[in-house]
Write a protein that binds this DNA or RNA. Structure first.
Lengths: 232, 232
DNA sequence: TTCTAATGTAATTGG
DNA sequence: CCAATTACATTAGT
């Protein structure tokens, strides 16, 4: 069943054996690992894996002495123990990247919601301001002609930090910027089949949960970084 | 140098050879790969890698015919070609995860700036509203006693969507929520030594560039998702 | 059933 | 030690 290639390449293999000696692949298992499937040259037994995992749990980078002891207990070469821990650390790290990604994405989604809320609140505040201004102007318009109170300048009531928002009355947006969303949506397409960890059903990468802004983001990166509103 | 274990396990190895046949590991290299380092059983030559990469560039999942042709050209087994492409795709995908992470983090940072700007603009708008309201009240206070205009209700000027923001006048924040930032900062600790790609100097993971909100986020996740302001 | 893509794992090499 | 590779195994899906 799985001996086809061996037969095809038997001659070449023998040449190699004579030239270079034997692979390290086949050192361990013949005696210690016959119990299960007889094949399975590589692959440590479940027992061995369990012990290794338990040890890894308590110390992912054990001393040589510990590794030697493990080798004796499990019937493996110290070299194999060392390699197992190296590979195990590498696997852990690779998984960690995905975990990091998911955590960051959750943060992003939460922040996205916050941002959306802020934008709506902003719009609401602008509407209120607009109405208050209309109210004020209307009342001033009702004053007698030539009244001293006609020279009240609404803009003058605010310090420089507060004038910027007035720009937004009426029109939705001065600067158009949806760079954030473009980035994110592009990414979403790319990793459709990314292997998620620990029972994730893939909903985290579905486009519905991504930032669902409309395209009315009012700042782009350059203006964001320079506190534009302080220049008024 | 690497023949120690062979000596120790020579007998076992021979038993295994007899029982299971030979590894495919050592099929190719003896003749085709002698030129460079003499040993180096595994590891394809630079020439072979170059050709494989070129082919991978144009098609990461070539037909069997193409693989057969490549095998002939490069002096490798078709099996090795197939495996190389499999592993190459796996590597590409692993890299993609890191790329995705970096792209997402950039989006996060940009969105974070936007959010911060929105919050400041919000504060500015609230301040303006406060002053306009004071202005209105002051003018009303100057009206003669018993004037009809005293019954103007400022709150009644706004529709339900706009009343919520009035709650924020004066006090910075009703609901305290910095969950987003907690998530992100925790992650930052976890992946200090993550291997970044393509000349990244690690600054992307330093805490300075992470969202630098103060803890005055005005919404928590639950209230964000339910559009709280529409309930007023 | 066979084939293959995707994933996991043991081992090697080089830095 | 670590990162990158190579080869192989296993599993799922078609």
């Amino acid at each position: 069943m799985f001996a086809k290639q061996e037969q095809l390449q038997a001659a070449a293999v023998k040449v190699e054996l004579g030239l270079l000696g034997l692979d390290l692949d086949m050192i361990q298992h013949p005696i210690t690992n016959v119990k299960s499937h007889s094949k399975n040259k590589r692959r440590f037994s479940d027992e061995q894996i369990r012990s290794l995992e338990v040890m890894f749990e308590s110390d992912s980078r054990p001393e040589s002495v510990i590794k030697q002891q493990l080798a004796n207990e499990l019937g493996l070469q110290p070299r194999q123990i060392a390699i197992w821990f190296q590979n195990r650390r590498a696997r852990t790290k690779a998984k960690q990247i995905e975990r990091d990604y998911n955590v960051l994405k959750e943060s992003y989604d939460a922040l996205s919601s916050t941002c959306e809320s802020l934008k709506r609140e902003n719009q609401s505040l602008r509407n209120q301001l607009q109405k208050l201004k209309s109210q004020l102007e209307m009342e001033h318009g009702n004053q007698p002609y030539g009244s001293n109170r006609a020279d009240v300048n609404i803009g003058a009531m605010f310090d420089t930090n507060e004038k910027a928002a007035l720009l937004f009355e009426g029109n939705d947006c001065l600067l158009s910027c949806d760079d954030n969303n473009r980035n994110v949506e592009r990414r979403d397409e790319e990793r459709v089949v990314l292997n998620m960890i620990e029972g994730t059903d893939g909903s985290l990468t579905s486009s519905e949960k991504w930032c669902s802004f409309e395209s009315d983001c009012f700042l782009d990166e350059s203006s964001c970084s320079s506190n534009w509103w302080e220049y008024w």
